[in-house]
Design a protein around this nucleic acid. Structure first.
Lengths: 325, 325
DNA sequence: TTGTATGCGTTATCAG
DNA sequence: CTGATAACGCATACAA
């Protein structure tokens, strides 16, 4: 900036002002400064700016997996909203393990983000401590809890599982099974589903569970296992995600089974592709776009008005019935 | 650090050294410093560190879309490699528009990344200028060019299209069509496919092209359009991505068409799910994992040994024949 | 509207 | 092995 100032015939401070608030500089000098910037290709050092102003305009975003559409689609809307307000997001993948998350949180905090977005509500004690000490707005999304760190937007996973079970029983399915990856939130949905379905129909609910991430492959292998070794012959399959559900659909098709006559399928997440599977997938919708946008707005509010008490917002879910169940 | 130093009975500088290179500090003082850090929950300010050392340990990564598995799976391996060496990536989505990319590049450069990864080789003149002026290693991936900015790892899209056409003609398909999104690289593959297939068989290649991002929906709508309004009845469909190809598969299934008897399908990218579609998808494999890792290693090399001449590396592609074609 | 002085929290350089 | 000192490039408070 000192260079630019020299060229434009003003001081470094004036250059700084021209960049941060052009209205505080006379039109004439503003022009000269802009010309000098264009001529030199000057790019302001945001690192120095952040250090001096104690505001980085950076918002950390930690998700379990960047290749998982569930999270990336939420990040997309969140990032868009943030960018519109001049904030940039720092995205990192931190797996489903709290210890890994803790390391990521520390790394991110060292960059002095203005706020942080986390997925889920189960964090290590140290993670909570660091976050609280950082004194920045923190948003936990995609789950709810009685003990939020700060802001929280999500829904009850056990309630979602129960709702799916009631839907399944109400639709007349006498038997049910579950297929899924073993991420902690999916497990809670699944257990609630099994308990509720058993309570409603009196029948046990077999399951096929995998350690790997959600994929079509899990869905196919899952239905195969249910059919071949778990004695499941006919009924509805509640899946941990739409991707897994799609795999179940494909495995059923490859075996010539009727959907939903022989095998009915319920997904989770209502991804964009759910209406385009064959047959169209019945799923549970969570408004990810609104979630990302709400989280962003809540952060702006905190940033403007300062800290206040923790707030938990239940955004709910909705069963979208299509042809698969 | 001054605080920590006071508690540990040493100067601020010693604390800095204890953190950056513990071996330069005596075991006794190191312990005292570590204890003080643990007691206070001190998190070093990486912003200040970067400003002073002129190294941010940040690598910018710009991709067209974070929800597109093609890119996110590459970023995953790249980020992993980077993190292993103590670098963190700053990921941003910049669409398929060079102007949007330019804005993102500027924003990122203001954060003073140590290197930058870009997808594609078509950038605005100003983007090139800024990147060159930044004096950092730049890697362009997923395409090759005669005029790289710095490092480049990718493959020839026209060659990929031609190879697909030769495969299709060689497999005996008399008719072909294309379905896809209209990202610039996919368009070049498609045009090369059409030209080559026409040259080999003498038949025209109809196409269904969409402006929206790749999805199952475009694949379904694409085949529907080819069948219903383009007079395409039977043959092989070359798709812009595996996701679109899967959509074509589903549309064919929903119409009771035989695959590959009536409609054969070739995808692109050989995503993890390609073997799990029904029937398994024939696709073109590009080694994304190796690409990400190579890009990372090339950056480390530049960072260590300093700048040298631009290097373009063609990583090629491979047709993976499964049952869909 | 513009300039001066000062500090943000580190690392680098040099000296002890 | 440790410490003093000077940057790093900008924003803020205050003065003119």
């Amino acid at each position: 900036m000192e260079m630019i100032g020299r060229i434009a015939g003003v001081s470094q401070v004036t250059v700084s002002r021209a960049l941060s608030d052009p209205s505080k500089v006379s039109p004439a000098t503003l022009r000269k400064i802009q010309d000098a910037i264009a001529a030199t290709g000057f790019v302001p050092n945001a690192l120095a700016g952040a250090l001096a102003s104690r505001r980085s305009r950076l918002v950390s975003t930690l998700v379990p997996s960047i290749t998982n559409l569930t999270y990336s689609s939420m990040v997309k809307s969140f990032a868009q909203e943030m960018r519109a307000q001049g904030y940039q997001i720092m995205l990192s993948e931190c797996g489903f393990d709290p210890a890994e998350e803790e390391a990521a949180v520390m790394t991110h905090l060292s960059r002095r983000p203005d706020a942080m977005l986390l997925v889920g509500t189960r964090h290590s004690a140290n993670t909570r401590k660091m976050l609280l000490a950082a004194g920045i707005p923190v948003v936990e999304v995609w789950d709810i809890t009685d003990t939020p760190i700060d802001l929280c937007f999500g829904f009850s996973h056990p309630e979602a599982g129960k709702a799916a079970a009631r839907f399944a029983a109400g639709a007349g399915y006498a038997r049910a099974a579950c297929v899924g990856a073993s991420d902690e939130r999916a497990l809670r949905r699944k257990e609630a589903f099994r308990a509720e379905f058993r309570a409603l129909t009196g029948t046990e609910v077999p399951e096929a569970r995998f350690e790997s991430e959600a994929s079509l492959g899990i869905g196919r292998a899952g239905l195969a296992r249910l059919l071949d070794t778990e004695g499941f012959e006919k009924g509805v399959v509640f899946c941990s995600s739409d991707l897994v559900a799609h795999g179940v659909l494909l495995e059923a098709a490859s075996r010539g089974l009727a959907i939903p006559g022989d095998i009915a399928v319920i997904g989770f997440g209502d991804q964009g592709f759910a209406p385009d599977t064959f047959p169209p997938l019945t799923s549970m919708r969570v408004d990810r776009g609104a979630l990302g946008a709400s989280a962003a707005r809540a952060i702006f509010d905190r940033l403007d008005r300062g800290h206040s008490a923790p707030i938990v917002t239940d955004i709910g879910f909705e069963i979208i019935r299509r042809e698969s169940a």
